[in-house]
Computed example of a mutant assay.
Amino acid sequence: MLDARRLYMLKTVAARGSITAAARSLALTAGAVSQQLAALRNDVGVDLLRPDGRTVALTEAGRVLLEHADRILAAMEEAESAIAAVKGTVGAAATLAALPSTVGAIVAPALGALGSRHPQLTVTCFVTDQAQLRELALGTVDVVLGQRYHHVPDATPRGITVTPLLDDPLLVVTAADQGDGLPVVLRDLAARDLAVPPPTTECGQAVLHGCQRAGFTPVPRYVTADIAAQLTLARAGLATALVPRTAIDPTAPGIRTAPVADHPIQRLLFAATRHTENANPTTAAVVAALRTAAREGRAADPPPAGE
């Protein structure tokens, strides 16, 4: 009989690209993973992996087995969710992956509310912008607070359920004495010193796309994915930044924000979970807290002058 744990190791190796990387994510030694994969190979009687340069790749038999492993592991999670739904109680642990730009306005309030409402629940939060949905599909996290910029087609992986939280526009940020808060025509930013994320990031791509729609390609003075650095440069009067509204503390002194008038750039913030027919009470509680925090935070955030 096939061992589900070994099937999960095969899935992890296929996703990570190497036994070493899979072992690291599983908190095991590479030797331990290799032994379990060797046992799985003996179970099925055919090679499942082959060397591929410095990585490994699935053989044809490995690809076939992985297709079945995905269904087996999904069925096991479905069974666990069904039992949890019958019990109807929120569990003791959950893991959340969240974008750094959402921590202040959404994550912290949501976790605070969860702590009051479900004191037995401990949520481990990974603040990262790297491969969140892949980690969700692999089962290393239970809930993802992610983003999708509106110009990008929806590419949600199969088996993932997405709950929209809010539309989050990028605002033009300047020093307090350099702006009036009125809506800004995006083309006018062509003449300013800009602080923007690298074009390899999702936000950087969105800024580039928006500017090109407005008729120019930005030549930034400062390139950084660190939103705190962008706001510092704007506060010092050294640059104009384009920053998601959710990432800006509306009470922060020394800056002024304004909406984009003609070619808005905005992202959808969403909560994602693995799809099950029966909602798991624990992940449902986390998603509900994120939704409430997003709604209350948006309602409490005064719009920029002129919006």
Results as ranks from 00 to 15, higher is better:
residue 46 V to I: 07
residue 78 E to P: 10
residue 45 G to R: 09
residue 66 L to R: 11
residue 38 A to H: 14
residue 41 R to M: 10
residue 10 L to T: 03
residue 41 R to A: 02
residue 85 A to G: 09
residue 63 R to D: 10
residue 39 A to K: 14
residue 69 A to S: 12
residue 64 V to Q: 11
residue 100 P to H: 01
residue 11 K to D: 07
residue 45 G to E: 05
residue 53 G to I: 00
residue 21 A to S: 12
residue 74 A to E: 12
residue 95 T to W: 14
residue 80 E to C: 01
residue 92 A to I: 00
residue 76 M to R: 10
residue 83 I to Q: 14
residue 34 S to T: 04
residue 111 L to F: 02
residue 55 T to F: 06
residue 108 A to V: 08
residue 99 L to E: 00
residue 44 V to W: 09
residue 14 A to E: 11
residue 109 P to R: 10
residue 31 G to K: 04
residue 56 V to C: 02
residue 21 A to Q: 03
residue 25 S to A: 12
residue 25 S to R: 15
residue 28 L to K: 15
residue 83 I to T: 12
residue 64 V to D: 15
residue 68 H to A: 13
residue 12 T to E: 08
residue 59 T to E: 00
residue 53 G to S: 01
residue 98 A to N: 01
residue 12 T to N: 10
residue 114 L to P: 09
residue 91 G to S: 13
residue 70 D to V: 09
residue 87 K to L: 12
residue 24 R to N: 14
residue 93 A to Y: 08
residue 93 A to D: 12
residue 97 A to M: 15
residue 38 A to V: 05
residue 50 R to F: 05
residue 95 T to G: 01
residue 28 L to Y: 13
residue 104 G to V: 06
residue 56 V to K: 00
residue 102 T to I: 09
residue 93 A to I: 11
residue 104 G to A: 15
residue 92 A to N: 07
residue 65 L to C: 12
residue 65 L to A: 03
residue 16 R to E: 13
residue 112 G to Q: 10
residue 80 E to D: 05
residue 73 L to K: 04
residue 88 G to E: 09
residue 38 A to P: 00
residue 64 V to M: 13
residue 73 L to D: 09
residue 53 G to P: 03
residue 99 L to A: 00
residue 26 L to W: 07
residue 98 A to G: 12
residue 116 S to W: 00
residue 66 L to W: 06
residue 79 A to K: 03
residue 75 A to L: 06
residue 27 A to F: 11
residue 64 V to A: 12
residue 25 S to F: 07
residue 20 T to P: 02
residue 84 A to L: 03
residue 52 D to C: 05
residue 20 T to K: 07
residue 71 R to Y: 02
residue 75 A to T: 08
